[in-house]
Simulated scan of single mutants.
Amino acid sequence: MQAHTPDSGDYFVPAPSRWPMVGAVALFLLGLGAALAVNRIAPGMWLLAAGAAVLVWMLVGWFGDVIRESVGGRYSGQVDQSFRWGMSWFIFSEVMFFGAFFGALFYVRAIALPDLSGQVTGQWLWPDFRAAWPASTGPLTASDYTPMEAWGLPALNTLILLSSGATVTVAHWAMLAGQRRRLVLALGATVALGLTFLCLQAWEYHHAFSSLNLTLGSGAYGMTFYMLTGFHGLHVLLGSVMLLVVWLRVLRGHFDADHHFAFEAAAWYWHFVDVVWLMLFVFVYWL
């Protein structure tokens, strides 16, 4: 199905939309619900659920409008370029987002630990402090924890994500070659691998809490571990949803070899998620 019109010099301007306002309401409900839930005030969980439902409604409705505009031939090549620049800058902003957390990890390990064990602070303020990573939270107290091993679920999840990067590349090749069956199978496998990764990460978190006593309160290690892996898991979920929507659109014949930027955008994002996980595996789990 043709998704673009020939370049005519006109730039498509969408009609006024209610979806930004709906999204603002969703975020307000989520924020208020989270604040109440953290303080164990009764309506908190209900407001969180309502905010999540409104957010899903907004996403389905808004992206549905964009899809209908695309398959209806409303977008020209100039709009396509705008989409490409928009996705590129979005991924760049995500690089900066994770860069801040990797920077915090570097600061703690390479700067703060040596500083705290220096001649002045080490001898006078914390004479028993050891500049070792992961940093201990105290001598044999309830706050002690066991660091997460790299060779186990994390290594398996690394293999799964690397495999998903390969399958989404195969799907792209199949798109360009017009091999629809191969495209459907490879893209479906990518979504399945992404969801498998999330299930194994949930299992890993359960193991960390129940067996390793590793929580957000487990010092700098626990904080950076959950912030980096948790936000990465959120991005895997987002990428899986994007690829699932693209897979459903493939089944409906929305793309061809020349016009399939929605697929390309999701693939770019997925490769970004893969690269971030490789850095996580090396710097959080392995070293």
Rank of each mutant, 00 (worst) to 15 (best):
G9R: 03
D10F: 10
Y11S: 08
Y11F: 14
V13A: 07
A15F: 11
P16S: 12
V25C: 05
F28K: 00
F28T: 06
L29K: 01
G31A: 15
A35P: 03
L36S: 06
I41R: 01
L47V: 09
G51I: 01
M58C: 12
V60F: 10
G61T: 04
G64Q: 06
V71L: 13
S76P: 07
G77N: 05
D80V: 13
G86K: 09
F90G: 00
F92H: 12
E94L: 14
E94M: 13
G103N: 01
F106V: 14
D115W: 11
L116G: 10
G122H: 10
P127T: 14
A131C: 01
A132N: 08
A132H: 09
L140H: 15
S143G: 08
Y145Q: 00
L156H: 08
N157C: 06
T158W: 01
W173C: 12
A174T: 08
G178I: 12
L187I: 03
L187G: 02
V191E: 00
A192V: 05
L193I: 03
F197N: 01
Q201I: 12
H207C: 05
F209T: 05
S218G: 04
G233Y: 08
V241H: 02
M242I: 06
L248M: 15
A257V: 11
H260T: 11
A265S: 14
A266D: 04
W268E: 09
